[in-house]
């Protein structure tokens, strides 16, 4: 293949940073938020107890939005690094 090692490394560095960014968000909304569910339930949003809301809906919305953002961001990295499919 004619792709240089430097180009590959650059592409992979950016891809990896994006991966870490998204896994941090994922970790917060998968685990951290629900660890404190009982405390969050003292607060209410849209008339829901917040801890319940996050598990029933909030985290899910974050995951969906984050994945569409990820697709868009990774696409941009592909194009800018010349690694996109033809």
């Amino acid at each position: 293949m004619s792709i240089s090692t430097a180009d590959r490394d650059n592409y992979w560095r950016r891809t990896r940073s994006l991966m870490i960014f998204h896994l941090v968000i994922w970790f917060i909304f998968s685990f951290v938020v629900h660890w404190f569910a009982s405390a969050l339930n003292q607060v209410s949003v849209f008339d829901f107890p917040l801890g319940f809301y996050m598990a029933a809906q909030g985290s899910l919305i974050v995951f969906v939005v984050q994945l569409f953002a990820f697709v868009w961001q990774q696409d941009r990295i592909d194009r800018e690094c010349g690694m996109a499919e033809d």
Partner: peptide, 11 residues
């Protein structure tokens, strides 16, 4: 658990 796993699948 059955939704957030897709973040791992995609990323």
């Amino acid at each position: 658990g059955w939704t957030g796993g897709y973040v791992l699948v995609a990323v």
